Amino acid sequence: MHRMELADFLRRCRARLGPADVGLTPGPRRRTPGLRREEVAQLTGMSTDYYTRLEQARGPRPSRHMLTALARALRLTDDERDHLFHLVGEEPPRNRTTSGHVRPGLLRVLDRLYDTPAQVITDWGDVLAQNAMAAALVGDITARPPGDRNIVRSFFLRRPSDPDSGLFPTEDLAEHGRIHVANLRAVVAARPDDPAPAALVAELRAASPEFAALWETHEVAVRRSTVKRFVHPVVGELELDCEVLLSAEHAQRLIVHTAVPGTESAERLELLRVVGLQALTPSG
């Protein structure tokens, strides 16, 4: 592990970004350019002390999960992401289309959607990045352990005690399940050599009778635009248009939820922006 080079690289990458580049409010006037250390820590889900020690060349060796989070938070290109992994002595991910690395350009689009929920997911359901509005609507999925960030797994293995167990109206659950399985069937067929979607199918066929029954229907349908209803514990029910924007490789998808102007859902979405973002904004 090249501690000094890693520290220098992190400092330089942090200095070239401003709060607006990562979807944060600028706040009071800053004495130095770039993000603050605590802001990088917030974006990656690590403690400020942990990140500070990395920049001071005295921190522990980051895990692969932490490196991926740093690459995303600092908006690194693919080449820069690979360099970050090499500095720690790790082999970088080789499958660029299905890795957890989101292209900086796509993240910039996500950051600018400040008034509507949006998130980037893999085609088989792993949530890679969310803006603040998405976290306010469905919860901060990126803060969960890596194995708990897949929306298909969460849907079929949901428990009444889970924070998002009541996210959708009960009468809509059957349709959501059908769409999840039909999309996953298409992904597995399109990428037979990718072990991750196949492993998810095997896990859910064994653990969820509902999934297993739907899988046997052999329905195939790629996830596209639709209308979804959400049940939020604070603002109530929202009916939102769901737009699915595909990446060039179609392995990552930008999901954007909007409300028809002038509707009650639009008013509730604006209330969510005010109430939800207040709860997510750190003090100081």
Rank of each mutant, 00 (worst) to 15 (best):
H2M: 14
E5Q: 14
R12H: 08
L24W: 11
P26D: 00
P26S: 06
G27E: 13
R29Q: 15
G34E: 11
V40F: 06
Q42C: 02
R53N: 00
A57I: 03
R58G: 14
S63H: 04
R64V: 12
M66L: 15
T68M: 13
R72D: 12
R72C: 07
L84P: 04
F85Y: 15
E91T: 15
P92K: 10
L106T: 15
R112V: 10
G125A: 02
N131C: 06
M133W: 05
A134W: 07
G139M: 05
D148L: 11
S154N: 12
R159S: 14
S161L: 05
P163W: 12
F168M: 03
R178T: 13
N183H: 11
L184F: 04
R185F: 02
V187E: 00
R191Y: 12
D193Q: 11
A198K: 05
A212E: 11
A212N: 03
A213E: 15
V227K: 05
K228V: 07
K228D: 01
V231H: 03
D241N: 09
E243V: 09
L245Y: 06
L246C: 03
S247N: 04
S247R: 00
A248Y: 01
A251F: 00
H257R: 06
T258N: 04
P261Q: 06
P261G: 09
E267C: 01
R268T: 01
R268C: 00
L272W: 10
